[in-house]
Design a protein around this nucleic acid. Structure first.
Lengths: 250, 250
DNA sequence: AGGGTTGGGAGAGCGGTGCTCTCAGTTCGG
DNA sequence: CCGAACTGAGAGCACCGCTCTCCCAACCCT
């Protein structure tokens, strides 16, 4: 029965469950609402205090419960963080995919720029969520497998751009990559393989995402202090995207 | 007298003080040793538990004191973290400068590669210190001015490479940078200005450091999962450095 | 050498955290 | 309708940063 409870909790905890029970039952519905209220409060606290400041007791206080009661809905603080992490990955991916989708399919450089711009815009709007997913991981915290799906959505969007560019004959390989590294590029296993992307282009594409991560984090975490003035950050970022387009070879 | 105590604590707290009192006094020396023991314990805890796990009480336990006693030596947990941050910046810069110094002065690409390699090596050896300085900042923590000096040492090393390359006529500007961004590049104010570095090269150089930050953090923080196999990380990183040399134009 | 001053350790305590356990009341399903 | 399941409250454990008081030992100065 304990395992029943656990699995019930776990399934209810899974994001995007929407089981649509035939007979929801009053108790089940109010439970679902209570859970959503808790998560909403957690999201609010995250945005205000940051990941380290997220406290189950504070959440309990806000929703008008005693701290032990929230454990009926959330197995642990870490699990709640995991849910917020998945949410954040998905929110970022939603924003990026929406921005990239409206760009001319043949403008590969512009598609990359759209990814870069929308990523930065989302991060600036939600700095704590950015810190949650791309900051230093909480020591002892291991990302559960549920997170890797949402986490890889943006890289997959970029991979699609590479794939389309390869198909169009743009961005040919222009650099040597040792053959023994071919199998090391695991990203290839995740993307549709009906189009052949060269190792060189795959690495350049990976670099283009790495660069976005590095630049946005640098800006948000204050590592551009005395390097680039804050007011020009966005304009400089546009130059950076141009140079990365140049590096990828679109 | 309270201000006296404060200033005494502050001056003793300053890194690299080494006041060399003429008459050290037994009490002063044992105090200094005690303080070093505390910082050493803090460093150990940082390496094991990470920044978030650094606890003054645990340190006190380890050095055989009651928790309130450590406050005679360290004003707060945050101040202790600041000291560790400065230490980490300096340790990284020491490693980078040592690696870069032994490279042929005219091999600008190789000098950059040395910076990139030594940065990654240090980060892999000291992941918690890397997370401390380049991970998400602790919410509510503001970097005191003492940190910016050590923090900018590696960027200055890179700036020197750019400057030398400019002087040698290598790496000419090859891309447009709007004139209004000229004053936004604050890094220029920090470096010796007897050599003219173009805006384009300055931005490319900044990008080369941003890229190192992004790539190393990606590797350490697990964002290369299902993208690049762990075993090939170092080899792929070498390719990345090659591509960045290409982007800078050395 | 003695006495006032100062520094440093110990202890208690405040408010906070995550999490567990027990108890009592409520709702639900057979 | 009654037993089973669910749910909130409360107490409690171990931890945290930090403050305050007390007391003893070391120090400096006369």
């Amino acid at each position: 029965m304990l395992s029943n409870l656990c699995s019930a909790l776990a399934s209810c905890f899974t994001v995007g469950m929407t089981s649509t029970d035939p007979a929801p039952g009053l108790r089940a519905r109010v439970r679902h609402e209570m859970r959503q209220e808790i998560v909403a409060s957690a999201r609010r606290h995250l945005a205000e205090e940051g990941p380290a400041g997220l406290s189950l007791r504070a959440i309990a206080r806000e929703v008008g419960m005693v701290s032990s009661a929230v454990y009926r809905y959330v197995p642990s603080r870490e699990a709640l963080l995991t849910e917020l992490i998945i949410d954040s990955y998905n929110a970022l991916a939603d924003a990026v995919e929406a921005a990239e989708a409206v760009v001319d399919r043949q403008g590969f450089g512009d598609r990359y720029r759209a990814v870069g711009r929308s990523t930065r815009l989302w991060a600036v709007a939600e700095p704590q969520q950015w810190a949650l997913i791309y900051g230093s991981p909480v020591p002892g915290y291991v990302a559960p497998p549920d997170t890797i799906g949402p986490a890889i959505r943006v890289p997959l969007t970029l991979a699609a751009i590479l794939s389309d560019a390869s198909e169009a004959g743009v961005a040919p390989a222009r650099g040597h990559v040792p053959a023994e590294l071919h199998d090391a590029l695991e990203l290839r296993e995740v993307i549709a393989d009906h189009v052949q992307v060269s190792d060189d282009l795959l690495i350049r594409g990976m670099m283009s995402w790495t660069y976005i991560l590095g630049s946005v984090s640098s800006q948000l975490f204050g590592h551009r202090h005395r390097v680039v003035s804050e007011s020009a950050a966005e304009a400089v970022y546009e130059i950076e995207l141009d140079r990365m387009v140049e590096l990828v070879g679109f």
